[in-house]
């Protein structure tokens, strides 16, 4: 038996398991930013990635163009039919916007939760491991990106900024399983229903809005947007559409399955959203607001 413990390999294995647990514990704890060696490595890697991703974008773009050419005719027909609707919609929107502005002027409220400033960024890498759904974008601290900002594409919300380095940052997609990843949302209807987006169903490819009271009626096809009440995201970012509603485990609440509007694959150009309205300070809020609801 003593010989067994003196075995050099076994000791190496045990020591490395201890180191492994320590390292995982170190990186899992709540940290507001990465340590500087990590940041340095990520910045260097990001620089190399952006070198590679430029020609890759070009090549991929070329093939995409070829594919687009194939169905140009049908797309054109459909787009033309949509054009007509768009014109009338645009006129309506302009009128409503004007109305809204006038009414706001009367009320004397200038800032709303809706206001934001967009910031363009390009995806330079994606996590190949595919458990942790993350992408790396080419804008960082120097461009004014901060932790927890919302990230969208033209079709809707895709995620939030997880960590920021000097010249690039990591975005965690909504499809990642992270209990801390909660977004305050509104299901739009005759009466708005509030809920929290938490979790993602990988098999159904749908986001889950949990803790909706069971009396509330939600129908398939209703729109879901961000509410802006979490304090970080602006209001009115498209999330997706309800595809299914089911009661939860105990029948007290119901869970809505939401098909995300944006495609989590095939991401190239994204927009990082900076909310204009100031965030309430931590000390102004009561002690309960410890958990991060975005």
């Amino acid at each position: 038996m003593p010989q067994f413990f003196l075995n050099k390999r076994l000791i190496v294995l045990l020591v490395s398991i201890i180191v492994l647990v320590a390292l995982i514990g170190f990186s899992l704890r709540e940290r507001s930013k990465l340590s500087w060696p990590e940041q340095f490595l990520k910045d260097t890697a990001g620089w190399v990635q952006s070198l590679v991703s430029k020609p890759a974008h070009l090549v991929a773009g070329f093939f995409e163009n070829l594919q687009d050419l194939q169905n140009t005719y049908e797309e054109n027909k459909e787009l033309k039919s949509r054009m007509e609707k768009l014109v009338s919609l645009e006129a309506q929107v302009q009128e409503l916007e004007k109305d809204n502005k006038e009414l706001r002027d009367i009320l004397g409220e200038e800032e709303t939760l809706r206001d934001f400033e967009p910031l363009q960024a390009t995806v330079i890498g994606r996590n190949p491991d595919r458990w942790h759904e993350m992408i790396i974008i080419n804008k960082g601290k120097t461009d004014g990106i901060k932790k927890n900002m919302a990230v969208v594409t033209a079709h809707g919300l895709i995620g939030k900024v997880k960590t920021v380095n000097q010249f690039n940052s990591t975005v965690q997609l909504l499809s990642a399983m992270d209990p801390k990843n909660r977004i305050s949302a509104i299901v739009q209807g005759d009466t708005n229903v509030f809920g929290l987006v938490e979790g993602y169903d990988k098999e159904k490819k749908a986001l889950l809005i949990k803790a909706i009271p069971s009396g509330v009626e939600i129908k398939k096809g209703q729109n879901v947007i961000t509410s802006g009440l979490g304090g970080v995201f602006p209001q009115g970012l498209q999330i997706g559409k309800v595809i299914e509603v089911k009661p939860d485990q105990y029948g007290l609440n119901q869970t809505a399955l939401v098909e995300p509007g944006a495609d989590f694959y095939d991401l190239e150009n994204i927009i990082v959203i900076t909310r204009s309205m100031a965030q309430p300070k931590e000390e102004d809020m009561s002690g309960e607001g410890k958990e991060e609801d975005l």
Partner: peptide
């Protein structure tokens, strides 16, 4: 470091 941000999984 670059992809996972949890040090240890692949390192081990």
């Amino acid at each position: 470091i670059v992809w996972i941000e949890i040090i240890g999984i692949y390192f081990f």
